[in-house]
Design a protein around this nucleic acid. Structure first.
Length: 506
RNA sequence: GCCCCUAUCGUCCAGCCUGGUCUAGGACAUCGGCCUUUCAAGCCGAAAACACGGGUUCAAAUCCCGUUGGGGGUACCA
């Protein structure tokens, strides 16, 4: 086992919490946990223009939801805080000054207009784009003068253009890029905020991060960071660039082509265990080829040798299957409680029930005392055996079980009620006989109902599927439903008979 | 364009480091069958891949080179 690894996940609060953040967090978590190190959450909120106020709490909430608990972070504290970059501006300012003093960086007074113009010109003559270094050679007195009259400026990194800068990527091996390919990166913007490159390096060092885990898209900027570490005289951390999650067309995963918000997965009834498991499967393989494993099982035999480098396509279909597996693996009690908690969460986040989908369920819960009510839990619990193998997400429960919660199931037509090659009148005759028979039942249980209906099959000469279709539609309102006899027991004799009467009125 | 990363079934992973055991294994999805009151679940089965070209070697999915494809980067975004 290696030294204790200190890792960090460093999302920007610029929108919904991203599935890529969870992906990085998972591997940071595994790396630090299995080496006895620490895992840090740092909020990189240096881009004031894209900042969104509620984003940070959504990130922390989502990470906790997934069980990817960090040891240090803005909401849990830690020895090397603050963990929000916007609260560390003074630290960056000092470090920039150090770079300026040691001439590893320089002030650049170029306006954005000039830079745009410069790029146009470069493109026009097919030259590689990049800062042309105009301010790199500014005389000290010129700089002083401009500073004195408050000309806005940025601070740029003085990149050595005469040598190769390299680093060892833990996943990919040696990576080298020549200095002339590297732009004189802006380290501090004219608004006084640092850019990612500066803040990231300074914070990683100050927070004692010794293994930088991040997405592949950062590989080409890593040499800039190497230069910074060298300029400060700091030891290099290890770098591990994870593959990028991809859309179906293999481009970097984006919200236009995939649900990327962790909030979306929660709202749509995915289980955190399933999401984490699925993310782990992206670029990682279990020890024995096992596909279903918990966080704990993953940690138990975690091995960086089984991490791969090529960008996996994010396949919602497979996530759905895994989610179904987890739903089926749950105990019926746990699943019932999960559902209730899910609907309570949905309600608390302003979910508007759809009458055609889940309106009946929410109405019924409200009428019966709400999410906390025992009678609600009891009935939900009673439906578990009927639905557990039939839903892949928590959200699929409501549309599947409308017949239990709806007052009036009418809305189907004869084309549903009447089996192929049978007539409406004949079907009604059958239903009438069925009604009489059911009404005479002494006990109303799954088996007594089944016995009665099966006897009818023999008596009337209808095929089982024909007779059960008519009964199913009459009682549940749909040709597709949970198992008929169990459903009838739950719905109860009074309602069942009433619904048969309604079918007879068709 | 330039730089960097990458390449096994449609998709996710094994196998590659340490060449032979690979007529390439598992999973999702697909298709077929069984079970069956619908739909699922479950069980059984089928189809489906080593990007291409050169080397090295008795032997290459595995090692080397090149090509091609895919991705990323090339901002006072992260």
């Amino acid at each position: 086992m290696s030294e204790p690894l200190v890792t960090r996940v460093a999302p920007s609060p610029t929108g919904d919490p991203h599935v890529g953040t969870a992906y990085m967090a998972l591997f940071c978590f595994a790396l630090s946990r299995t080496t006895g190190g620490r895992f840090i959450l740092r909020i990189e909120d240096t881009d004031r223009t894209r900042y969104q106020a509620d984003s940070e709490s959504q990130i922390t909430e989502s990470l906790h939801w997934l069980g990817l608990d960090y040891d240090e972070g803005p909401d849990v504290g830690g020895p090397n805080g603050p963990y929000r970059q916007s609260e560390r501006t003074e630290i960056y300012r000092e470090h920039v000054q150090r770079l300026l003093d040691s001439e590893k960086a320089y002030r650049c007074f170029c306006t954005s207009e000039r830079l745009t113009e410069m790029r146009h010109a470069q493109r026009a003559r097919k030259a590689p784009p990049g800062y042309d270094g105009l301010c790199r050679g500014l005389l000290p007195e010129d700089i002083e003068a401009k500073v004195a009259d408050a000309t806005p400026y940025v601070v740029r990194l003085k990149v050595p253009k005469d040598r190769t800068i390299g680093f060892i990527d833990e996943l990919r091996g040696k990576v080298e890029i020549h200095g002339k390919e590297i732009d004189d990166q802006v380290l501090m913007k004219s608004d006084g905020f640092p850019t990612y490159h500066l803040a990231n390096v300074v914070d990683d060092h100050l927070m004692e991060v010794n293994e930088v885990v991040r997405a592949e898209e950062w590989i080409t900027s890593t040499p800039k960071h190497v230069i910074l570490y060298e300029a400060f005289g700091w030891d290099l951390p290890r770098f591990r660039h994870m593959p990028l999650l991809r859309n179906k067309d293999r481009s970097k995963i984006s919200k236009r082509k995939n649900p990327t918000s962790l909030l979306w997965y929660k709202a749509n009834g995915y289980l955190p265990e399933a999401l984490v498991n699925f993310l782990a499967l992206m670029g990682y393989s279990g020890a024995d080829g096992e596909e279903m494993f918990s966080r704990e099982q993953m940690l138990a035999d975690f091995d960086t040798k089984r991490m791969s480098t090529s960008g996996p396509v994010f396949d919602l279909e497979k996530l759905g299957w895994l989610n179904g597996e987890y739903i089926r693996a749950d105990s019926e009690d746990d699943l019932a409680r999960r559902l209730l908690a899910h609907w309570a969460y949905r309600t608390s986040t302003g979910h508007e029930p759809d009458p055609a989908v889940d309106g009946a369920l929410y109405d019924w819960i409200t009428r019966n005392g709400g999410f906390e009510s025992d009678s609600v839990e009891t009935l939900i619990r009673a439906t578990m055996p009927l639905v557990q193998t039939r839903i892949k997400t928590l959200e699929e429960y409501a549309p599947l079980t409308r017949c239990f919660f709806l007052d009036d199931i009418r809305g189907y037509g004869p084309e549903d009620l009447v089996p192929k090659k049978r007539e409406l009148d004949a079907t009604k005759d059958v239903l009438r006989i069925m009604r009489t028979k059911l009404a005479g039942l002494e006990h109303w249980t799954t088996s007594s109902v089944e016995e009665a209906l099966r006897a009818l099959v023999d008596e009337l000469g209808w095929k089982p599927r024909e007779l059960f279709q008519a009964a199913r539609v009459a009682i549940t309102g749909s040709k597709v439903s949970p198992p008929l006899f169990e459903s009838m027991e739950l719905i109860g004799p009074a309602t069942c008979l009433e619904r048969i009467d309604q079918a007879l009125d068709l």
